[in-house]
Simulated assay, not measured.
Amino acid sequence: MLEARLQSASVLKRLLDAIKELVTDANFECNEDGLALQAMDNSHVALVAVNLDAAGFQKYRCDRPMPLGVNLGSLTKVLKCAKDDDMVTLKATDNGDVLNLIYEAKNSDRVAEYDMKLMDIDTDALGIPDTDYEARVTMPAAEFGRIVRDLSQLGESVRIEVSKEGVRFASDGEAANGNVLLKQTEAARQRYAGWGVKKENMDDEEAGSSNKKTKKEKNEKKGKVKKEDDEEAENTDADNVEEDDGGAPESDKNSDGEAEQEEEEDADEEEASNSKKRKRSSASNNKNAKRVKKSADEGDSGGVAIEMSQAVSLTFSLKYLVNFSKSNSLVDTVQLKMHSEVPLLVAYHFGQGSIQYYLAPKIGDE
């Protein structure tokens, strides 16, 4: 059985709006790690890979791996029935043929429920090899979207050149030519430092810090309890001089009770720590995005950050890049990864996961 609850329906709505024109039917593969979608467009030029991490959901349960075959157009229509701030829950049973969607208003005065028929889609997962890209460009998503939309008015293709000077987008049309150069700046390099890094690494660091703090608190508590026990034991020994041998000293009973209370407190602390780790997993993924958004709000949104082992120049279809840029509704930052022998990777990382597009370059006069 699958049960996945998102705090806001707007995430799914924006996600589907970004990919529905590229992909018609696709499988959401569900497992204990979350939901994943991988599909190619009809012309087999572009591939989209979506990941929604289990930690990004308010509640997530998946008893066994299962595919959810959906028509993205139909799912988009069903999601339009939800308000952006509605809490949405996805439910599906093992071997079921229906996806159940429940929308709950924030004030809990409205609950809407919809059932959508699932499809049997036979697709093979494509292996995406790990690639050591020759150039990585991190930049504002809105700026990327504006550039490709503007250049699409001139021609059908864009040449992306990455060098020490910066990244240049150039398009040659029948009536006019145009190019845009974004120079790398130190401010942009600092702003985007660590953007897109796997959140597991950050979680491990934060969890380690949390564990050290918890361990220190436990040791301090145990030291305090031991000190109190010793003081009580001394007082009890003095009192026992006048007591009979019958019955256990009251101090032993108190000591046992405090030991049990200490164990219960430790268990509560451990349970609270595990709960915080899950929340931290989602929050840490937003950390860099919030920093980027803050910089944009302060007016420092220009420039790019470039990591490069060698200069790269490749040509791509603007039609696809314009479609990719629709994902800027999910996050403020985009990363372009280029290699002379593999497809372009356009990556967006947001609070609940990531969406990645792969686009084959144009060759010659194609």
Rank of each mutant, 00 (worst) to 15 (best):
E3T: 13
R5G: 05
R5N: 07
R5W: 06
R5T: 05
L15Q: 02
L16C: 08
I19T: 03
I19C: 12
F28M: 14
C30F: 09
D33R: 11
L35Q: 00
D41E: 08
H44S: 06
L47R: 02
V50Q: 03
L52P: 04
D53T: 13
F57N: 01
K59H: 06
Y60I: 08
L68R: 01
L75N: 06
K77G: 02
M87A: 01
M87I: 13
V88Q: 06
T93Y: 09
L99R: 00
L101W: 01
E104P: 05
A105M: 08
K106Q: 12
K106D: 09
D109V: 03
R110C: 15
I121N: 02
T123K: 13
T123N: 05
G127Q: 13
D132W: 04
A135Y: 04
R136V: 10
A141K: 04
I147T: 05
R149M: 11
R149A: 11
R159D: 01
E161F: 06
S163D: 12
S163L: 07
G166L: 00
R168C: 13
F169P: 05
D172Y: 06
A176L: 13
G178Y: 11
N179V: 14
E186Y: 07
A187K: 01
R189M: 03
A193E: 14
W195D: 03
W195S: 10
N201C: 00
M202H: 15
D204L: 10
E205F: 13
E206H: 03
G208W: 02
K213Y: 15
T214P: 01
K216G: 07
K216A: 11
K218E: 12
K222Q: 14
K224T: 14
V225P: 02
K226H: 10
E228L: 12
D230Y: 05
D230C: 12
E234A: 00
E234T: 08
D239H: 13
S251A: 14
N254E: 00
S255Q: 15
E258Y: 08
A259I: 11
E262W: 06
E269L: 07
E270R: 09
N274V: 10
R278K: 12
K279T: 04
R280Y: 03
S281Y: 03
N286C: 11
N288A: 10
D297Q: 00
G303S: 04
G303Y: 00
A305Q: 06
V312H: 00
S313Y: 04
F316Y: 07
K319T: 13
Y320L: 15
L321G: 12
N323E: 15
N323K: 07
S325N: 01
S325C: 14
S325G: 02
K326S: 15
L330S: 00
K337Q: 06
K337M: 10
S340V: 10
P343V: 09
S354Q: 07
Q356N: 10
